[in-house]
Computed example of a mutant assay.
Amino acid sequence: MDTTGILDEALQRLHRSGPERLGRLTNHAPMAVEALAARGQAGSVHRWLDLYAGKLEEFPSGVEPVTADNWRSALGEARRAADWIGYFGREIAERTWRTVLTEWWPRLLPGVYGGSTHPVIRVGHAVRTLLTGEVTEPRLAELAHGLGYWAARYHPVEVLAPLPGADSATAALDAVVPIAERDSGFAIRLGRVTGLPVWAATVTDPNEAHRCLTELVRAATHRYATHGHGEKTMLVHAATAPNAVLRTLPALPRSLWVPSLRAAWTSSAAVTAMYAPQAPLAYTPSGTFTASEVFERALAHGDEHVIKLTDTALDIGDERALAAALRSIELSEPLVQDVS
């Protein structure tokens, strides 16, 4: 992880901005700069931020402080983002960050779909930094921002009908039935998902839950290499959302690992149902690129989703995952020509 202080500088810079812009589009910068720092590219963080700055909005105004007594009424209220971030900032200042995370993870997990799954992804990046590097005030504040965003965008789904499933994550994702109507955004499409294939439903052991979640992240990442053209941006989340959950598991009690697997599967499968293409494309191998070379290409491309998917692909590290990252570079519009 970054030991130069650059990540902390970037987070402090970003905490003057809100978690969204235009009332619905997520601020991806905190996640992207964490990924850059984690992959040895801290020196490019501020240059990348300068280019992304036009997508940032000022931190929103508060409405009313969230407290231990009134938090239920504020859950899922997007206009309360500042209130929620302030609440978690106070909680983390008074207690350990792991204690706060452990208390709120099961409360927030049913609403993992909110904000198009971006809040849990932001939390996953924040937790990785806290687990693998020094615990600093900007990094603790980043966790507060991520949890606050999640609470503000909390969005559960109705009970989904169990559909015929499969034994493997790959086969289960293949069995997902795409929704028919695709003329609207994430929230409306999500309401059109009424059932998902059954997968890993009998898992009760935390170790097995960890193994299955790892399998799901690999399968969803691999799938992007042949299915990413269905929606180049949104299908990234079928991999990055469960990976955020996977990255958070070591900070959570083992008793929360099985429900975390359940939420990760339904979110990944739901995204697949909403955006899967009619048919896959032929698989194109990644060639001779190394993992570091693929990440350098993602950085040069600059798109925030490309950077985050490539970061997840490097967690997996195999040839097909690298091919998925390269596919995202091909499909996506670059932020700039070169920020490396």
Rank of each mutant, 00 (worst) to 15 (best):
E215W: 03
L322I: 08
L281Q: 15
T240R: 09
I307K: 04
P259D: 09
R247L: 13
S116G: 07
V336G: 08
A276E: 09
P162S: 10
W48A: 01
Y149C: 10
P334F: 11
V336H: 12
E77D: 11
E304Y: 12
Q337K: 15
S340Y: 05
T233K: 12
A68Y: 01
G185F: 09
L56R: 09
R13V: 02
R80M: 11
G18S: 07
E20K: 13
T102Y: 03
E20Q: 15
S292K: 14
G228W: 05
E94A: 15
E91C: 12
V306G: 01
H222C: 11
L314D: 01
P197N: 10
N70S: 10
D2E: 13
L25Y: 13
E34F: 00
K55W: 08
G124W: 01
R189Q: 14
H28N: 10
H222K: 13
H229C: 08
L173H: 02
L326N: 03
T129V: 15
H229S: 06
I85W: 06
A82V: 04
G124K: 03
R13M: 09
A171Y: 02
V245F: 10
L101C: 06
L56T: 02
V123T: 09
A244W: 09
M1C: 14
W199F: 04
Y52F: 12
A42C: 02
E293H: 08
L190M: 11
R189V: 07
A175D: 03
R192D: 06
A219F: 11
H46E: 10
L7R: 01
P110W: 06
D311L: 08
T266S: 15
R107A: 14
P60V: 03
Y283F: 14
R297T: 03
E20I: 11
S260A: 15
G148I: 08
L331M: 01
L22R: 14
G76P: 03
F88Q: 07
L75C: 01
A209V: 10
A220M: 10
R223P: 04
A321H: 02
P164Y: 02
G62L: 02
A200E: 06
A144R: 00
V271L: 13
A35V: 04
T102L: 07
L190I: 05
A141P: 04
A53P: 00
P280S: 14
W48K: 06
P19W: 03
H305Q: 07
E158F: 00
A269H: 00
P60N: 02
P30M: 13
F295G: 02
T266H: 15
E91Y: 01
S61I: 00
F59I: 00
A126M: 08
R72H: 13
N207I: 08
R218D: 09
A270H: 01
V176H: 04
A166C: 11
H46F: 10
A291D: 12
G18F: 07
G185Q: 04
G76V: 00
K55H: 13
A273Q: 06
T194H: 14
D8S: 03
C212K: 05
R262D: 15
D2A: 09
L322H: 12
